[in-house]
Design a protein around this nucleic acid. Structure first.
Lengths: 133, 133
DNA sequence: TTATTATATGCATAAAAGTGCATATATGAA
DNA sequence: TTCATATATGCACTTTTATGCATATAATAA
């Protein structure tokens, strides 16, 4: 399509596009469920995906404006960015309302992974390999 | 990602994917706004896209379960399929809540196009060319 | 400094998606 | 039947996206 000023729906299309991928949707649901910041290795272990893939998909979610990033030493923490308009609110509600059983394994692994935090912080690195991918 | 039974989020990903395209998003918004069945040529004229592209994108929306199709003689009428679960409800609300000004030109052309109906039905074919694409 | 570790990214490749053109299908009209 | 018209689709081509591997960056520890 030719683009013009009055048809700038790219931002919205980009958000749909960001959610059009299994890994990214799993990350979004994980972050929504967690309701707090998670570091890359916690997400990676919960999903049992490659760390570089998780890293890349997080970047795309960030570009789309769905998550935010915060550095904490060697760790980088990601969390859901508060919805800025009605559109984003409904999008987040949609993701929230996908049946939980689809994500249950991710969520169970997250629970275990979070129990390994010390003082509310992740202190270990990637455990995916040890957990037997 | 490898697929397995407990991770069947394809349906949801497919819906996001269906909305990850400018043309398809414009069609969705047009149908939501119209609140009734529209034939392919009415949609084509409103969007001023090629008829074969509109036809193709409608098919994808149908496969994703977002619209339904009904034949009426030579015409094929499309309309928004009622949401079957919370997820779809929120998705439709999201699309509804994208600022209207982005779609205003499409909506204006639809209004004109609908005024050409006779007995509530489209009786002319494609007018895009005459309308000066 | 050097080593370690958490995260990010460039490159290569494969798969998927978007789209124009030509053509096919299907229904109604003549 | 033959023609016209509304819609659909196969093919070809280009662009985009996904992803593994290797490597780079950045922060901490030793």
């Amino acid at each position: 399509m030719h683009k013009s000023a009055y048809m700038n729906m790219d931002k919205h299309v980009d958000i749909f596009k960001a959610l059009s991928d299994n890994t990214r949707l799993r990350i979004m649901r994980l972050l929504i469920h967690a309701g707090r910041e998670l570091c890359v290795c916690e997400i990676t272990d919960s999903l049992q995906e490659s760390h570089y893939n998780v890293s890349r998909q997080l970047k795309e979610l960030k570009i789309a404006g769905l998550v935010r990033e915060q550095k904490a030493g060697r760790w980088v923490l990601y969390s859901i960015l508060k919805a800025k308009d009605k559109f984003q609110k409904f999008i987040l509600h949609a993701v929230e309302n996908i049946p939980e059983d689809i994500f249950i394994t991710d969520l169970q692994r997250l629970k275990i992974r979070l129990s390994l935090r010390k003082d509310g912080k992740c202190v270990i690195g990637l455990k995916s390999k040890e957990w037997g991918k």
